[in-house]
Write a protein that binds this DNA or RNA. Structure first.
Lengths: 199, 199
DNA sequence: TGTAGTATACTGACTGGTCGGTTTATTTTT
DNA sequence: AAAAATAAACCGACCAGTCAGTATACTACA
């Protein structure tokens, strides 16, 4: 039998084991027995801490979204708003998604899952809304400072978020071959300068 | 017993019924009995035409990718390459994905599924590679004509494809509220002109 | 052009493995 | 001793897939 540990630590252990399994085999193909084996605990222990499989999944999603939220908030605090912000913020966020081998496959799956689950959909809705607002505020401020042309900043923000999510999705398909850093830098430069000649 | 029909028609009937079910409940939550009920056929009939549930799923994906391929090819033929192409091609592709109630929820799911299935991953890989190449060729031509500044056109192409895919994904979350047309037009304008002032 | 023979299309009751969750027993902590 | 935590045998609903048989269409031959 495994040594007793604090509730906090046990829950974390179980979540970690579950995440490992979900990212390897996907939510539906992961068996409770897999999580049990991976965690080194027993069925009783798992069901003591969580209601069931879906409950674990939801917890993981919430954890993940919380982490993302923290990243975005840190980004807005740490970096000076302005052209650089666009490049740096995007890079940092992408870096996290590209270099975390466990999260990125899991991420696409839970977007798919979200379509069916009211609770997840609502959560995602809130979080993305907030991100879009944050990026929009950044754009608005740069416009106010007279450093940027006037655009519908909401549309621009949605585009940027969509682009980032799209790259994460493409990573599912292309894997490591996708050089997100180069892509993002090129794109940001093009957006800042415009691609058309002689206007 | 249902009247006999040609093999072609029967397969199409089954695929259509399955698509309806998958888009409503998702791949994993769809039961063979759902497809049977929806198609009005019997279990035996379904298994006469397809090896099983996964086989049906794969067929639907291939059908879908084939349709997308045709759209892209038509776009490249019909529209004059140049600034307009960017706007029009993107819009048309987005329109298809946003207005097809059956495909768009299904789409995110099969990206998630693709991560696990070698056959699907390979297929997706080919198709996206081709799209990126097509858009890249378009950019290269515009640069050659002297209408566009020099950029790493591959990175730009990937960005555009990613943005489109990202918008489709965001649709899963925001639904009809997401005004893709406005977003895309704003973005395209920004990319063409650049967002920075006075450089 | 009727009929016997054969291939094809289809039916639906049944099966058997799977797997999320429950129960009961046991151990550890307070 | 009571409560909390863990172990693991067990349950049973569920569901993809099977199969023995039936109906329909096609073919060959008289």
């Amino acid at each position: 039998m495994t040594r007793r540990k604090s509730e906090e630590i046990r829950r974390e252990e179980i979540l970690e084991a579950a995440l490992k399994c979900f990212s390897k085999r996907g939510y539906h193909d992961t068996r409770m027995d897999d999580i049990i084996k991976e965690s080194g605990l027993s069925k009783g222990a798992i069901y003591w801490y969580f209601k069931g499989k879906r409950d674990i999944f939801i917890f993981l999603i919430e954890q993940h979204l919380e982490e993302d939220k923290i990243i975005w908030e840190r980004l807005l605090k740490e970096y000076e708003l302005g052209p650089d912000f666009l490049i740096k913020a995007g890079l940092l966020y992408l870096k996290k998604h590209f270099e975390d081998e466990k999260l990125s496959p899991f991420f696409t799956e839970f977007i798919a899952e979200s379509y069916r689950d009211k609770r997840i959909r609502k959560k995602l809705n809130e979080v993305y809304k907030r991100w879009i607002e944050m990026v929009k505020e950044a754009f608005d401020m740069v416009i106010k400072e007279g450093k940027m042309k006037k655009f519908d900043t909401e549309s621009l923000s949605i585009s940027l978020i969509a682009l980032i999510e799209g790259l994460v999705e493409l990573k599912t398909i292309f894997g490591e071959k996708l050089k997100y850093e180069k892509i993002w830098r090129t794109f940001a430069k093009a957006l800042l300068e415009g691609i058309q000649k002689g206007r």
